[in-house]
């Protein structure tokens, strides 16, 4: 942007700090996707997000950095750890965390990295901006949100409400539809399936026949 652009290689102090944080972030991200222990992956994710927050601080985006610490490190990683615990994941080393198509994944990832890095280096080789503090402070960002971006902000609050309700409906078993949604409408959509059928007390023999029929259909479908 400026007229005279300093050279790329002897990096300034800010760039050295950012590059060190970037190396930490990349290394911990690599450990997230390659570690053999599920809980360690979540903890390396904390390191990666923390390093990225430090990078935001170097880039003078202070408010984004603290929001990153609060939401990503504080909420999302804790949520992922709860997911790990609730799915009864093995605590120690588990050998089957990697899929069978690992070679293809390496190929695709290396190709993606090559294409992106080539394009980006050629496109932004001379892009330079001096860092000036204060641009990403909470005051400036807050006034920008509530002046120019109010409508997306409100839409996002509605989205959060919808996600909250959706998560509750998905994770609770006693509300919402029955667990087998493939039942034909003729069969009784009682949430227990075959057991505890209090309202259909008439005609035990054809009732059981219908139950087995609907059960076979649902198993075939689901």
């Amino acid at each position: 942007m400026t007229s005279q652009v300093p050279d790329l290689w002897p990096p300034t102090g800010q760039e050295v700090v950012f590059l060190l944080l970037g190396v930490v972030a990349l290394g911990s991200a690599l450990l997230v996707v390659t570690t053999r222990q599920l809980v360690h992956a979540a903890l390396w994710l904390v390191v990666c997000f923390g390093a990225l927050a430090g990078g935001y601080l170097v880039l003078t985006a202070e408010f984004v950095a603290w929001v990153q610490v609060l939401i990503y490190v504080g909420a999302i990683v804790v949520l992922l750890l709860f997911g790990i615990m609730l799915t009864r994941a093995p605590i120690g080393r588990s050998a089957d965390l990697d899929s069978g198509n690992r070679a293809a994944a390496v190929l695709v990832a290396v190709a993606t990295a090559a294409v992106l890095v080539t394009v980006v280096v050629q496109g932004f080789a001379t892009a330079y901006t001096p860092l000036e503090p204060g641009g990403g402070a909470a005051g400036a960002l807050g006034s920008s949100i509530f002046r120019s971006w109010v409508l997306p902000f409100e839409a996002l609050s509605v989205l959060l409400l919808a996600a909250l309700i959706g998560a509750i409906v998905l994770s609770r078993t006693d509300i919402g539809g029955p667990s087998r949604v493939t039942d034909s409408p003729g069969s009784d959509p009682s949430p227990d399936g075959t057991g505890s059928d209090p309202e259909g007390g008439s005609g035990s023999e054809p009732r059981s026949d219908q139950e087995t029929g609907s059960d076979g259909v649902s198993r075939n479908g689901g």
Partner: peptide
């Protein structure tokens, strides 16, 4: 601050994410 450094870090991070989605 050169724009190249953060953008390259971002590209590599994205590629690591792609690997994780495909390989896990």
């Amino acid at each position: 601050m050169h724009v190249v450094y953060p953008v390259v870090v971002s590209a590599l991070l994205f590629s690591i994410g792609v690997y994780g989605v495909l390989a896990r």
